[in-house]
Design a protein around this nucleic acid. Structure first.
Length: 848
RNA sequence: GCGGGCGUGCUGGAAUGGUAGACAGACCAGACUUAAAAUCUGUUGGGGCUUGUCCCCGUGUGGGUUCGAGUCCCACCGCCCGCACCA
């Protein structure tokens, strides 16, 4: 008998699937549709184990749906715009386009051996002009609908590379590539009006029952709805045009504890004052320079500048509070101005302590309040809070009630209004980069900003660009910028900013439903295929990509590109864990460890015998060298082994640690299954009917358990069940016919995870056609329960013995059997039990 | 600081409130072999004695609810993740 050879099997079956065209999504109305999608990859040029895990999970779902009679859409594409292509071009002198398409070709070649049930006919890359041209059309429609606009905004500006950087591209206040200190700069940029939809995006989260609660919560926090009071302090002797300072607070109940007013360095008042105050101008400039990174903020000291101005407290106009410009106040949240309550807020406390401002407790009981507090005074949760009406009245309330009551009180007394605010800000999409989707507008000296005509789309990126100097190549291109004004025809200039790549990924899943349409979408196709029934990807996209996509689906409905039913594009979301690996390191110079690839380490030592230090498992990363190349694994063991292993050891939402022994074990198991099937295929040994019955019963239980596992993302549990069933089959004395049936079923149950091996076994055992499209087995309930069952007997909740009883035995009969056991009789010592609990089919508990 | 999650053998992990440790890895022992590999079988939470179809303990710690708790509730400890000068 020959041995299991994945290399031989796998290529054959991929060819067979290809020729049969079984993964091509049709529109068979007789079948229910099912759209399964994994987040599409960035074409870095190399697939990694994370991809393998992600796509394998999606493939298990897709193949299972195919076998259960669904019309399945399972597409793949490339998130192909972005900075790495430009960085590669800058580093090696190539062109981003060549680099990207070469990487796509390479990655496609690496992915195909995985045997994924993908409809490759729908493949596209976001850098294809056919795609980004439609994206430009979408942009124009959104512009017309008021969903896109231009405004002046503060951004991270890298003065060396001369481009805007996203927040995540700023490290410790410096540009991640240039190392230059990032400046905050005001620029006119394009924005999507996502914040207008804040309430709807928040409310609709409630309906996303099949999303992880964690992701919904993260989005909820990100949208950040808050309820508060907005009102003004009257300003004494302010500059021209400034007679009040508008503030927003979520804690109006602390109003009587106010001791100063703080405004942002970017606040209009601060900007006005700095005109005549060079010290303040210097202070503001210093504040604006400060980085916006987490670390920079943590280190930054609370600093303020006393403007010398004062405001009047709304409830006691003789009470004057100083006005400071303070570095910790953000211009783009609330009104850019606050009142400080040092007694109840750590930041305000730090500030007040530094500048010798009063610390006034706003809550009773006043007798507990120390007039010389050394730390913020925080009332206990249950303690009644005496809110503003302490000043004017006598009502006692707490928490949110106190805040609402205070707002009502303030409104009644003409001090401001209750308002709802959101943290969510509009999405700035302008990037001063070449390798992105050009924003299709023209700047005309007479007409201003003019949308490009749709018939001129796509506005293509020019190919003749250079990357030898920093900045945006589109800006310095000799001719590309020149364009006639679509309105008046005069010479005008193209917009040279391109779109954030998150725009590309916000609607690609809709484009998959009609990838060749001459409009952004084919609404009928979108209506048929949308929504994505199951979306799978990393939790790192919990906010940005998933929130943007939810916004886009709504925007596309508004602009007529999608039915309303697709406004929430992803019915179910699953966030899978990472693939991790131990890190091997040896001490290097200057205390920095030297990392070693897993393949260079044997038994804890390098080839030359040097022992390595093993650092606990972490996400595979090139810099730590704790990576295992999927290609190497596929070459050594086959794709089925890689697929089986990444699904087997851990629940899919958790990280899985790649271990050499685990991969080896997976391969051994698949070899074993292959061997068992081969023996059955060759064998003709007789068995006994009793063994047949037992085997088939086990088979039906396995069908049930594995099906449940596959349908509920319990892949690891399904695989454990398959191990167990394989063991039963291997030991069974059943006749060949029964074994054959069981082995064919085993192959079917394994087919979503190990499709190639499953096909091979199916064929070996005389299965008809391709297993990939053979109807999924159905468990027979009659075969799933045994006539006689074993149930444990507890005494006072502790297991003491077990009894065998007929499955359908009456409760009191079961009780009698249990009481008659030696263990129970011994424990009773002739007495009567106090109570006997019988859970049918489950357990008996005798209470003594 | 705010929000969320998780703590189970040597390891990954399993367990609708109902036999804790399924299934794997690792280790050890045995079979086969001249030997090794491969394969197959078996053992493995801790402790005790009277070695049994035995007893006690055991799911981070301490309480509670329940006939019964890894699972539910309260408090604490530890770890992980997300957000964050957001007023």
């Amino acid at each position: 008998m020959s041995r299991y050879s994945a290399a031989q099997i796998e290529a054959n079956w991929r060819k067979a699937w290809d020729e049969a065209g079984i993964f091509r999504a049709g529109s068979d109305p007789a079948k229910p549709k099912y759209y399964v999608l994994e987040m599409f990859p960035y074409p870095s040029g190399r697939i990694h184990m994370g991809h393998v895990r992600n796509y394998t999970m999606g493939d298990v779902i897709a193949r299972h749906k195919l076998a259960t009679g669904h019309n399945v859409l399972h597409p793949m594409g490339w998130d192909a715009f972005g900075m790495p292509a430009e960085n590669a071009a800058m580093a090696s002198g190539g062109h981003p386009k060549d680099w990207t398409y070469q990487n796509i070709a390479d990655m496609r070649d690496q992915m195909k051996p995985l045997g994924l049930s993908i409809d490759w006919s729908r493949e596209f890359a976001t850098c294809d002009p056919e795609y980004y041209g439609q994206q430009q059309a979408l942009f124009l429609d959104m512009l017309e609908a008021g969903l896109v606009y231009r405004k002046n905004a503060v951004v991270n500006w890298d003065p060396v590379d001369m481009t805007v950087l996203a927040n995540e591209q700023v490290e410790n206040g410096r540009g991640w590539r240039s190392g230059a200190e990032v400046e905050r700069r005001e620029l006119t940029q394009w924005f999507f009006a996502i914040s207008d939809m804040a309430e709807e995006l928040l409310e609709a989260l409630d309906g996303l029952d099949n999303w992880p609660a964690k992701v919904r919560l993260m989005q909820e926090n990100w949208i950040g709805k808050s309820r508060g009071l907005q009102f003004a302090f009257g300003l004494n002797d302010g500059p021209e045009g400034f007679d009040r300072v508008e503030v927003y607070t979520t804690r109006p109940d602390t109003l009587m504890g106010a001791s100063f007013i703080g405004v942002s360095p970017d606040h209009p008042l601060a900007k006005d004052l700095e005109k005549d105050d060079s010290d303040l101008a210097a202070f503001n400039a210093e504040c604006r320079k400060g980085g916006t990174t987490e670390e920079a903020l943590e280190k930054a000291e609370k600093r303020g500048y006393d403007t010398g101005l004062t405001v009047r407290h709304p409830f006691d106009t003789s009470w004057e509070l100083p006005v400071y410009v303070a570095n910790f106040i953000l211009m783009d949240y609330g009104t850019g101005a606050i009142f400080g309550v040092p007694a109840h807020d750590q930041r305000d406390f730090d500030f007040a302590t530094k500048y010798g401002l009063p610390i006034i407790p706003a809550f009773l009981p006043a007798e507990d309040a120390d007039p010389h507090l050394t730390a913020p005074y925080v009332p206990a949760k249950t303690e009644p809070v005496h809110y503003v009406s302490n000043f004017a009245g006598d009502t006692w309330q707490s928490g949110a009630d106190a805040i609402e009551a205070t707002i009502a009180f303030c409104e009644a007394n003409g001090v401001g209004q209750g308002v709802t605010k959101y943290r969510l800000r509009d999405w700035g999409l302008s990037r001063q980069r070449y390798w992105g989707c050009p924003i299709p507008v023209v700047h005309c000296d007479t007409c201003g900003v003019v949308p490009e005509k749709k018939e001129n789309l796509p506005i293509r990126l020019p190919d003749d660009v250079t990357f030898d100097v920093p900045g945006n190549p589109l800006d310095r291109h000799p001719t590309w910028r020149q364009a006639p004004c679509p309105k008046c025809g005069a010479d005008a200039r193209r917009e040279t900013d391109t779109m954030d790549t998150f725009v590309d990924s916000s609607w690609y899943f809709i484009r998959f439903t009609a990838p060749d349409a001459q409009t952004p979408t084919d609404v009928a196709a979108a209506e048929y295929w949308m929504n994505v029934d199951q979306y799978i990807g990393g939790v790192e996209h919990a906010i940005l990509h998933l929130l943007y996509s939810r916004f886009f689906a709504r925007a596309m409905h508004i602009t007529g590109h999608l039915p309303k039913s697709a406004s929430e594009p992803f019915n179910a979301l699953f966030t899978q864990g990472m693939v991790t690996h131990e890190i091997y390191q040896t001490p290097g110079d200057n205390g920095r460890p030297v990392y070693h690839l897993p393949e260079d380490v044997k038994d804890g030592r390098l080839a030359d015998g040097t022992p390595v230090q093993i650092v606990p498992s972490a996400k595979m990363s090139k810099s730590k060298k704790n990576v295992v190349d999927p290609i190497g694994i596929i070459d050594a063991y086959g794709a089925d082994t890689a697929r089986w292993f990444v699904l087997s050891d851990s629940p899919p939402e958790r990280d899985v640690e790649w271990t050499a022994s685990g991969a080896e074990a997976a391969h051994k198991h698949l070899s074993r299954v292959w061997r068992i099937a081969s023996e059955i295929a060759e064998g003709s040994a007789d068995g006994n009917a009793e063994a047949d019955e037992a085997l088939l019963r086990e088979m039906h239980k396995a069908i049930h358990d594995v099906t449940v596992g596959v349908e509920s993302f319990g892949f690891n549990a399904a695989i454990a069940r398959l191990y167990a069933f394989t063991g039963v089959l291997a030991k069974s004395d059943a006749a060949n016919a029964a074994k054959r049936q069981a082995a064919r079923t085993l192959a079917q149950l394994m087919s979503p995870m190990t499709p190639h091996l499953a096909e091979e076994i199916w064929q070996m055992l005389g299965g008809e056609g391709l297993i990939a499209i053979a109807p999924w087995p159905v468990a027979d309930p009659a075969m799933m329960h045994d006539d006689t069952i074993t149930i444990p007997v507890q005494i006072n909740g502790k297991r003491r013995t077990e009894i065998q009883v007929p499955q359908d035995m009456a409760k009191d009969e079961v009780e009698k059997v249990a009481l008659a056991t030696d263990a129970v009789q011994r424990a009773l010592e002739g007495a009567q039990p106090k109570k006997v609990i019988v859970v049918p089919g489950r357990i008996v508990n005798v209470v003594i």
